[in-house]
Design a protein around this nucleic acid. Sequence first.
DNA 1: GCTCTACGCTGTACCGGTTAAGGGCGGTCG
DNA 2: CGACCGCCCTTAACCGGTACAGCGTAGAGC
Lengths: 338, 338
Amino acid sequence: MVTRERPTLEAVARRAGVSRATVSRVVNGSTTVAVGIRDAVNQAVEELGYVPNQAARSLVTQRTESIALILPETANRVFSDDLFFPAVIRGVSMELDAADKQLVLMMAGSAASHDRVERYAMAGHVDGVMFASMHGADPLPGALARLGIPVVCSGRPMTPAELPVPYVDVDHVGGVGKAVRHLLGTGRRRIATIAGPQDMIAGIDRLTGYQDTLREAGLAEHVAVGDFTRESGLRAMRQLLADDPALDAVFVASDMMAHGALQALKDAGRRVPEDVAVVGFDDFEISRLSDPPLTTVRQPIVDMGRTMARQMLGLVNERPSEPDAVVLPTELVVRASA
Amino acid sequence: MVTRERPTLEAVARRAGVSRATVSRVVNGSTTVAVGIRDAVNQAVEELGYVPNQAARSLVTQRTESIALILPETANRVFSDDLFFPAVIRGVSMELDAADKQLVLMMAGSAASHDRVERYAMAGHVDGVMFASMHGADPLPGALARLGIPVVCSGRPMTPAELPVPYVDVDHVGGVGKAVRHLLGTGRRRIATIAGPQDMIAGIDRLTGYQDTLREAGLAEHVAVGDFTRESGLRAMRQLLADDPALDAVFVASDMMAHGALQALKDAGRRVPEDVAVVGFDDFEISRLSDPPLTTVRQPIVDMGRTMARQMLGLVNERPSEPDAVVLPTELVVRASA
DNA sequence: GCTCTACGCTGTACCGGTTAAGGGCGGTCG
DNA sequence: CGACCGCCCTTAACCGGTACAGCGTAGAGC
């Protein structure tokens, strides 16, 4: 290992024959530097391969130019075959790249994670913190906000914090409504649902959408609960079939669970959509490829990420560009399964 | 926004009635501090909610306690439905979590990325840099290593750098050999391959494994090239069928491409495995669920991540625990498709 | 009772930047 | 021709920690 010394401002200044302050101003693009000097400094920077030390810079500016995205799940869960988080990350990184901010991803599924994240942010590692899809009434966003750290959430917070936190969410209830009405419109009358986890706003709202629409139609509910994984969808579908062998449709609160449900229906010898119609929620790529292709509610996940990032950039620049609460539209995509 | 001042060492010192230096030693767990003082300091830390400023600390220690993982792809590609990167990330974060290091993920698919990553590392943001699965003969790992920055790669570097960089890879050639010999053992004689991108070591080595084994057996090669995506697998399979309608087996260099190939075979009315046997490479979760379940070469991706992280931790602690080059074993998993 | 040693704490010089205040110098105006 | 002004640069004071040198104090030894 060569461990060549990294050049400092001082070294550049000596080489260019000016003071540290002047070099600093050139490096930061100040306009009040004579052209001759500026060129000399830039040349010295080039020759020495100077790169500013971020720690030193952060120490005085109190900014790090990087932003954290908290994924409140274990790494196992974040990077399973569920493509929700990847899409959020994609959207976020598009915007942050453009703003030349560094994205710091933190998986926070463990119990010790809250402390860890809080300490990380408090230590000044990042200029702001974004949360993707939280469980329960997480106190962390509120806590960070109270400390003066910019915070943005994806998913409406479950309990309105005393200090409201900006968020972006999608129209779960509206989307589910469209899905269930589509099922009603094709003559289905025994419509069950596989709901998502009831400690997440996405799980709760989608169940609410189902219940509201069924109540309007004067039909009975059949609810099983999963946790958004394929496996849980499979189990829930089996249970629904056991409870009501005559059901003719099911709205499933996530595409992954819907794929599990398709499997269970196939195992049980039910034809989709002839015997049982299936609608999912997400519109992942693979849902176009399933057998049969899945009718589903599309939510703009990448857009959620982008919006969240833009909100964050507005906060750290102290000129908010996005409104505090954004709700993006959802859309029913009709394919073969319903 | 409240923007409460974050307490500093100085504040804690005043409150506890000791000097900054003593507080620093308590915070860092030095043993040479009297119990009474230590308790007083800890209490003050507690009361003020003190958290050390990482920038200040890094400035003097020259360490950041965080480590970068470079994914030499765009975010789109990293988080598509290919589960290679997620698995690497999972392995890496297991080890780094345990070592209390922060993982910084960087997607570097764009052209400007090299500069960006180099500058990021040079700016002292991270203590070390890990590369996941590179394209071509990337000069960046060597360049960083020459600057004295600890570097580890996943995937054997394509050109031996003047400064060798530690790496972890899997036994591509051996695994493919087992796969192709399995096909031979079941009587297949017209065995084609869908190779991976030939600017990546994984693509090259797997093709080599195929060619070596076929040459041993005295059989002719049929090669199409894809880029590890499902779509490219589908196209490549179509082409292979057009070139040789009588082929009876195909070794596909990645599971995603294999799924594309299964689709193409189904479209072409070929039965798997009766007409054409298919073997993949990866052993992703979904390959158990495909129709038919995919015979494939399992590579321990999570282990690769873990090993890479352990190598890195050895480097930054200057007590290398892992050997410089690690090659992990691969294993043939026989299911229904071959 | 005094010295010596060891321990434990304090004082302070850094780390590498940024930025406000200050000063040199050439040009302009009265 | 001198005072003044404004432009640009330098000087130096921070930012919040770490770590080293040094000093006070208490206990041991004689």
